[in-house]
């Protein structure tokens, strides 16, 4: 078995998710190769050689890959994947975008968002917003898989000494072009990999109160900020804060849910956190069923009190 993992990076740094996907690859077994594809991303590939358990880093540099459009990425990966038994990437906005194209062009099924490796051909994945887990066996010759990063402990950043192989590959279908990119620059830790997440819901009532109450708390805890769908839809924060079935999946050491009722779609994104705290004025809110520590009260009082006591 030889496994190809596709790295997630921003042409400068490897994203943490990659090390979790490598852990899933190692749970499958066999030799693991890592593809770093991008624009001027040699430094990323060089750093990736040290990752624990990687035998070979494949580097593809191509200007068309700067924005890693799905058509481009899929064509590139397709041209490299034929000698492998498994193809893995993170179930991130990026992996979800291009991976199904590869599966379709290989004429194989894709296993999305796996949380467990049961055998090299058998995997478990959450369905129905994580209310149930399905264990599925694939008969395909190449297993195409996206991995839920939070379900696998990251491999070590050091200790490896992978060989580096440059690959020439051009791909530009010319079908799509990025015309604008609006990234929210934040000095906070990345939501998916933060140790502490402070998340707000509709109970915050407005964008002003969301930031006035939750930012100081997050500052004290060096936490990332998250939100429920209702908070995003109401415009308190932008879309990339959404935690849940159809947003981001997080599993920090500490998740503090403020003014969030705990709909299944929200729980789907944070239920695997180590410790969950819920602050809600409704003692019957479903969020309390998954909270280790629940505090019934008005968030307008409780949150400032908590912040100043820290």
């Amino acid at each position: 078995m030889t496994i190809l993992v596709v790295a997630e990076h921003d042409n400068q740094h490897l994203k943490a998710a990659t090390r979790h996907v490598l852990a899933a690859a190692q749970a499958i077994g066999g030799e693991v190769h890592l593809l770093v594809a991008g624009q001027h991303c040699a430094a990323v590939a060089e750093a990736a050689r040290a990752l624990s358990g990687v035998a070979c880093v494949l580097l593809v540099e191509n200007d068309a890959l700067e924005s890693a459009g799905a058509e481009c990425m899929a064509d590139l990966v397709l041209s490299l994947v034929h000698d492998y038994t498994h193809l893995l990437a993170a179930a991130s906005a990026s992996g979800k975008n291009w991976m199904p194209r590869v599966a379709a062009l290989l004429d194989v099924a894709q296993l999305s968002d796996i949380v467990r490796v049961d055998a090299p051909d058998t995997f478990t994945r959450p369905i129905y917003a994580g209310s149930v887990w399905a264990t599925v066996r694939s008969e395909d010759t190449i297993k195409v898989i996206t991995v839920r990063a939070t379900a696998f402990e990251a491999v070590a950043e050091t200790g490896g000494s992978a060989r580096l192989q440059k690959v020439d590959a051009t791909s530009d279908a010319g079908l799509s072009r990025r015309t604008h990119l609006a990234l929210n620059d934040s000095s906070r830790p990345e939501l998916e990999s933060a140790r502490v997440v402070v998340s707000g819901g509709r109970g915050l009532g407005s964008a002003e109160r969301f930031s006035a109450l939750l930012e100081p708390l997050a500052d004290k805890l060096n936490a990332a900020l998250g939100a429920s769908r209702a908070a995003v839809d109401s415009g308190y924060v932008s879309n990339d804060y959404q935690v849940g079935q159809t947003g981001k999946i997080v599993a920090p050491d500490l998740y503090i849910a403020v003014g969030i009722s705990g709909a299944i779609q929200h729980l789907a994104g944070m239920k695997a956190s180590r410790v969950i705290v819920a602050i809600n004025k409704d003692p019957d809110a479903p969020i309390f069923a998954v909270a280790d520590y629940g505090l019934v009260g008005d968030l307008n009082q409780v949150v400032p009190e908590l912040t100043s006591a820290l």
Binding site: A134, T135, R137, E139, D140, D292, Y293, L295
Partner: peptide, 25 residues
Amino acid sequence: RLTLLKVAEPPARQGGIKVNDVAEL
């Protein structure tokens, strides 16, 4: 191309407690 072997409840979370105030939390 996929065989569904089984469908099961995910691992359950241990129920927690309610705390009375910020100090206890």
